[in-house]
Amino acid sequence: MSEQLIGGSFQDDAYRAVQERLRESSAQAARRADERRRDDTVLRVVVADDQDLVRSGFRLILSSYPRLLVVGEAGDGRQAVERVRETRPDVVLMDIRMPVENGIEATRAIRADPQLEGTHVLILTTFDIDEYVYDALAAGASGFMLKDAEPDDIAAAIEVVAKGDALIQPSVMRRLVETFVRTRPATGPSDASGSDFFAVLTEREREILVLVARGLSNDEIGSDLFISPATVKTHLARIMAKLDAHDRAQLVVRAYEGGLVKPGER
């Protein structure tokens, strides 16, 4: 009997010790999360995907990177927009195919909200060429990546997009846009009033936009036009402002949609 009591007492003490360690670990994790929330260098991320397992996987992956903090999750597009408005993240990892509202509709709503100007959308796709990727980029997404990408690649992608850069390499962007523009009716190089959509650009800016759409990097554009990469970057910033484009990805979309560049041109 005494042995049973001693054994029972020992088990109770061990259980309490484990519980105490768990409480301490949770408290430490909460303190670390609070510290990261107060750290201006930490990038805040919302994960939007209709699969619980996928969201949990991304949260687990991102939690191992000191500069990344998941501040919200969403299971559909409408929830994604709500979470973004609540948490004001730097980046949204956005699945395309979701219920209620898909990722394209959610991206469009986020990019249309002036209070969310600092939030960038990174599209998640299962395949390297998804039939909806072009629409997502046109809606304001900053790029896309595969769901099964390596953790370091995911973390690096978030860093890139948070800075306002397009994730997709220029040559890849060009192939992607050309593939989908060929299947769509040309909108023509004019705006709703019938005037030249690109009339706001200088001749040099038009040159640079064409080269961006053809897949050239800043260094390559600078070499072609005999100007420095820094000058190219300055021109790109002005072009983005004039065409209401958020990043390089949208500039390429604008160039093809407006007819400044035709699929297959070199």
Results as ranks from 00 to 15, higher is better:
T179N: 10
Y134K: 07
F127G: 12
M173C: 03
R184T: 00
P114W: 10
T183C: 04
D191R: 03
A149M: 11
A156S: 14
A138P: 01
I129K: 14
Q115A: 12
V161N: 03
A157T: 03
V181M: 03
S190A: 12
T179M: 07
L122E: 04
D191I: 04
E117I: 11
D135N: 11
S142K: 04
F144H: 06
G140M: 03
A186V: 08
V172Q: 12
E105R: 13
I154Y: 02
V160T: 13
V172N: 03
Y132E: 06
G143T: 07
A162T: 03
A162N: 00
R182Y: 05
A136Q: 01
P185E: 07
A192I: 10
A109C: 14
G143V: 04
V177E: 06
D165R: 11
A149Q: 11
G194K: 08
M145L: 12
T125V: 07
I154M: 09
M145A: 08
T107C: 15
P114F: 12
V172F: 07
L122A: 08
Q115E: 13
L122Y: 09
A186Q: 11
V172G: 03
F144P: 03
P189M: 13
P185T: 08
V121K: 05
A139E: 04
P114Y: 14
R184F: 10
D135M: 03
A157L: 00
K147S: 02
P185F: 08
G143E: 02
S142W: 05
Y132C: 09
M173H: 00
V121W: 02
T119C: 13
V161S: 04
H120Q: 13
F180I: 05
G164K: 00
A112F: 11
T107F: 09
A156P: 05
E178M: 00
R111G: 08
A138R: 09
A192Q: 13
G188K: 01
A138K: 13
I168N: 01
V172P: 00
D152C: 10
A192E: 12
G140T: 01
L167A: 02
S190R: 11
G143C: 03
A162W: 04
I158Y: 07
E131C: 08
E150L: 15
A141Y: 02
S190H: 13
E105T: 15
L167V: 02
S171R: 15
A157Q: 01
P185W: 08
Q169P: 04
A112E: 15
D135V: 05
